[in-house]
């Protein structure tokens, strides 16, 4: 699923094989209409809702307006959540990269006949419910659990506990989106010609230099795709913060959810959503441009 995004899209078929005819539009129409009506229009609605003003005297009712101050209000009240979202997602993405890279490298380069089985094992955890998997971390990281006891014995935990701290939230995010990191990395490393590694060894590069100068640069498309596919859902997630963190660890997703569903403050919730989406898109495009791989679609 994820690898598809990582795949180089530029290999379009020779022009001769493509036909220009009305059939093309007919094939596109139903699906694109669906995306237009239920994705594009809702985003537009979201934007309009974010500018609505409360109706005087009728609590919970909002009317179309151009109240830009909603955005200011949202930022003033929720900037810590914004900050936390990007910080937690960023740290989780880095950790996932560190864990996923050796795994993906091993599967792509060394696993041989175990390759398929290992790939299946990477995606298999996704078959168990996301919520239950996250909930299971409550058991693993509980205060008297072996993990916590061990780390406490080493005196490395600032609060002597993991559960209901930011560490647990970041651990949960790292865990949950790890397969999204592994698969694109695998796809990139699998394309790596092993002879390039040999050539580098032959040309006086030791294993570390070979990694720095050959393997890493050639796997960059996978790194870019993997970090995006991990960072985006992690930044918008609120399940990990809700199930594993304390009220001090709430992320922007929690704020959107409570404002929409509990407070029914639609303009503020919409402003938050819209800003989250805009921030992510800006980050994504800046990142892709910097990494020089624009063929993500």
């Amino acid at each position: 699923m994820v690898v598809g995004v990582a795949a180089k899209g530029g290999t379009s078929i020779a022009p001769g094989a493509q036909r220009r005819s009305r059939t093309g539009y007919f094939l596109l129409l139903p699906g694109m209409a669906w995306l237009g009506i239920f994705f594009a229009i809702p985003i537009a609605t979201l934007f309009m809702t974010s500018l609505q003003a409360p109706v005087e005297g009728a609590s919970g009712q909002y009317a179309p307006a151009f109240q830009v101050s909603n955005y200011a209000d949202a930022i003033i009240e929720y900037w810590p959540q914004f900050l936390r979202s990007f910080l937690y997602a960023g740290i989780a993405t880095l950790l996932a990269l560190v864990i996923a890279y050796p795994l993906a490298y091993f599967i792509a380069v060394k696993a041989g006949r175990w390759r398929t089985l290992m790939l299946v094992l990477v995606i298999a955890p996704s078959f168990a419910s996301f919520l239950l998997r996250t909930y299971a971390w409550r058991t693993i990281l509980a205060d008297e659990s072996p993990v916590t006891t061990f780390l406490n014995a080493l005196h490395v935990l600032p609060d002597d506990r993991i559960l209901n701290t930011s560490i647990a939230v970041i651990a949960g995010l790292t865990y949950n989106f790890l397969p999204f990191m592994v698969l694109p990395l695998y796809a990139a490393l699998e394309r790596l010609d092993p002879r390039l590694i040999e050539a580098s060894n032959d040309l006086y590069a030791n294993p570390i230099t070979t990694f720095r100068k050959v393997t890493w640069p050639l796997s960059l498309p996978g790194v870019v795709a993997g970090t995006l596919l991990t960072f985006i859902p992690a930044a918008g997630d609120y399940i990990n913060a809700e199930l594993l963190g304390s009220t001090q660890d709430r992320m922007i997703g929690n704020a959107i959810q409570t404002n929409f569903i509990d407070f029914r403050d639609y303009p503020i919730a919409s402003a938050l959503s819209f800003m989250l989406m805009a921030a992510i898109l800006v980050l994504v495009f800046a990142y892709i441009r910097r990494a020089g791989t624009e063929d993500l679609v």
Partner: peptide, 27 residues
């Protein structure tokens, strides 16, 4: 391999695709 006074011209060359010709030769 990287410690030997021996170099190889690989089958189908194994040129580094991300480096230009100069950098390949200078590697």
């Amino acid at each position: 391999a990287f410690q030997r006074p021996v170099n190889t011209v690989f089958q189908s060359y194994a040129l580094f695709p991300h480096l230009d010709i100069f950098e390949n030769v200078a590697f």
